[in-house]
């Protein structure tokens, strides 16, 4: 059972990482336009370089 000493912190850390990523996405307004985002992948406007 000693492995728990590593596994529990690891699982908490990974979960926390996911949560932090979600916070970041929410804060940077990535959930504002779900329909537009799903359509934007179809255009080739910024395929070569991201929009500056």
């Amino acid at each position: 059972m000693d492995v728990l000493v590593y596994l529990i912190p690891v699982s908490l850390f990974l979960g926390g990482l996911g949560l932090a990523a979600f916070f970041w996405a929410l804060k940077s307004r990535q959930f504002e336009d779900p329909e537009g985002d799903s359509n934007r992948i179809l255009t080739d406007d910024y395929d070569d370089a991201p929009k500056s």
Binding site: E32, P34, E35, G36, N39, R40, T43, D45
Partner: peptide, 26 residues
Amino acid sequence: CAGCISGVERGLSGAPGVLDARVNLT
């Protein structure tokens, strides 16, 4: 649709004085 998004954004970006245009399709 996707065509509308890029049509509008390109059309507006080319307009004089426009710094940025972002369509929200939702």
